[in-house]
Design a binder for these strands. Structure first.
Length: 564
RNA sequence: UGCCCGGUGGUGUAACUGGCAACACGUCUGGCUCUGGACCAGAAAUGUCUAGGUUCGAACCCUAGCCGGGCAGCCA
């Protein structure tokens, strides 16, 4: 890719920005913001927005502000502020330790409200929520004007000040813009600017009993911070005329005016993305918390073992556009695998152990084998893995009567024990019930290391651990949280909860090679032939816990499925 | 049946702005392999919502229609 191509706009937002840059509209440069409301945990959809906003700033040499849109104290909390900061930081973006808060502008916003009143563009309305709703009209019929719409400027000024002082009960009065009740755009029908709400705010405490609405706060906050491009999701498209209306009446001549641009939020198959639904999953106990690895939250992705690089690669690959679409979860899976494959040291672990005894291997002998940590990355070095007479192999790697195309162990078959030797199966031992409890084999001592001197080949290579040396670990095998691509589509009378995958978590007791002993939470490995795994924070000195981040692709499983 | 937005292979995104519809994922086939992974090579995709129009030429511009999404919180 030559320079010209690399610098070409990648999406419609970059096109807009470059036009604005050319027209000299942005003053000093490009300035974006990521404006979460601290009322929940961030999810992969937010990651798309974070990567977009911070990425745009980086590309055009500008800044991106992290700004908490905290205008509704009833729903917001510092717990969420902290988690959001942690997530943004983890994703690899920084805001130079200058977080912004819409609540920092409460004073300015109040002054602007007073200014609108002075201009005759806002009034105090005594109607309650129900009345306001009843007089707003419908999308097809105009609303009715409030009886309080004609109050004088002085009366409005007095009443608004007394609202602020706390002279009126919650919900008894609001400040509304005077725009017109017949607008075809519902948001322009004298929208509420301020409401009375006696709630303790996580930052301003009890300083205020009136709080601005989103529409009155957002655009002006952008303006205060010198934001040039205010990027939000599609549902705010109809708010844009109001966003511009406030700025038309409040912005000063010659100062940078922000421009709102809308893009399609991320939808992912096999999961849900709304905060409300995610909250339900947590509250109703369908998952263990916001960071349960089955969740699409950033904290869950992190706990599961995804890297920030994988998430960023995903954000880049899905692109940015305006149509409402659903991205295939397989694309996220791909990005995770691609990244983990490059960086994960390999290790052997057995999830469903079956004893394998090497009959002609001396009892008590141990070979310390030198095995590469990552065959594709010599710099990753190697480790020593103990090999002995009694091993564990994966139960599904042995079949007494193998079907066509099964390359693993079966009576009379020779396979390779990864990094160790070639071994031929001599039989299996069963219990009274007929269950296979042990497999027996003979090894070829000349093949120590993995290859026979005579150059003969085997079709299968199995992972294994030495029974006497293995470390025991709890391994949490996660699968998709929902059984269908579109969990919202449920049977008559049921909701998305009915589409939860009952097998989304399977916990097994596994044997892992001793190399992983002492691994710290967050450490990642590839368990050869199985997938990528990450040490869970539940790990203690006495208990080792792994999460399966994602399985390796398994073409045999696919083949076996087809055969059925 | 008001207003706003959007329709490109199964999925997502492109098409140098009116000039051979491409890239990635997924799928399939073959190769290679001490991971049935990775990697390499290749294939299929009945793809520009429909109908008109402008034009030498339309995914792109115009008109009409169809389909999908959003909007009636003192939520954001």
């Amino acid at each position: 890719m030559n320079n010209e191509e690399k610098n070409r706009p990648q999406n419609f937002i970059e096109e807009i920005i470059e036009e604005d840059l050319k027209a000299g509209k942005n003053g000093p440069g490009v300035h974006t913001r990521f404006p979460p409301e601290p009322n929940g945990y961030l999810h992969i959809g937010h990651a798309k927005s974070i990567c977009l906003n911070f990425g745009l700033a980086a590309k055009y040499g500008g800044l991106c502000n992290l700004r908490f849109d905290d205008t509704n104290p009833e729903k917001e909390d510092v717990e969420y502020v902290d988690s959001i900061m942690e997530d943004v930081r983890w994703l690899g973006f920084q805001w130079h330790d200058r977080p912004y808060y819409a609540s920092d502008y409460f004073g300015q916003l109040y002054d602007w409200a007073v200014l609108l009143i002075r201009k005759g563009l806002a009034y105090v309305c005594d109607m309650g929520p129900d009345e306001i709703a009843a007089t707003r009209g419908t999308p097809t019929e105009p609303g009715r004007e409030s009886p309080w719409r004609g109050r004088s400027v002085d009366e409005n000024l007095d009443l608004f000040e007394r609202m602020k002082k706390g002279e009126f009960p919650d919900g008894s009065k609001v400040l509304r813009a005077k725009i017109g009740m017949d607008s075809p755009n519902m948001h322009m029908r004298d929208p509420v600017l301020y409401r009375i709400k006696r709630a303790e705010h996580h930052r301003t405490g009890n300083d205020w009993c009136i709080y601005p609405m989103y529409d009155f706060a957002h655009g002006q906050s952008d303006y205060v911070e010198g934001i040039t491009h205010s990027i939000c999701t599609l549902e705010f498209e109809v708010h844009r005329p109001l966003y511009d209306w406030f700025l038309d009446h409040l912005a000063e001549e010659g100062r940078v005016r922000p421009r709102q641009i809308e893009f399609a939020r991320l939808n992912l198959s096999y999961t849900v993305m709304s905060k409300r639904l995610l909250l339900r999953l947590v509250k109703e106990g369908h998952v263990k918390g916001w960071d349960d690895p089955r969740m699409p939250t950033i904290s869950a992705l992190r706990r599961r073992g995804c890297t920030p690089e994988a998430v960023r690669a995903f954000a880049a690959i899905i692109g940015v556009a305006k149509r409402d679409t659903v991205v295939d979860m397989a694309l996220l899976d791909h990005c995770i695998r691609e990244d983990l494959n490059r960086r994960s040291p390999r290790v052997m672990g057995v999830l469903d152990p079956l004893r394998l005894v090497i009959e002609n291997y001396p009892d008590g002998r141990v070979d310390e084998l030198e095995i590469a940590n990552n065959p594709e990355e010599p710099a990753a070095g190697s480790r020593r893995v103990p090999f002995s007479r009694v091993l564990y192999i994966e139960r599904e790697d042995f079949m007494e009567e193998p079907p066509r195309g099964f390359f693993r162990l079966a009576p009379g078959r020779e396979v390779r024990l990864r990094g160790a030797c070639l071994a031929t199966c001599t039989g299996a031992v069963k219990d009274e019930a007929g269950n296979i409890v042990e497999v027996r084999c003979e090894w070829d001592p000349a093949s120590l290391g993995g290859n026979a001197p005579d150059g003969r080949r085997v079709k299968g290579t199995l992972h294994w651990v030495s029974a006497a040396h293995a470390v025991k670990a709890e391994v949490r095998l996660y699968d998709r949280l929902f059984t269908c691509e579109d969990p919202y589509r449920a049977e008559e009378g049921k909701d998305f909860i009915s589409n939860i995958n009952p097998y989304s978590l399977k916990i097994v007791s596994a044997y892992i090679e001793p190399h992983v002993a002492g691994a710290r939470p967050g450490e990642r490995f590839q368990f050869e032939r199985l997938g990528y795994f990450c040490v869970d924070p539940d790990t203690t000195d006495r208990r080792l816990v792994f999460n399966r981040t994602i399985p390796l692709k398994d073409s045999w499983a696919r083949e076996a499925k087809k055969g059925r």
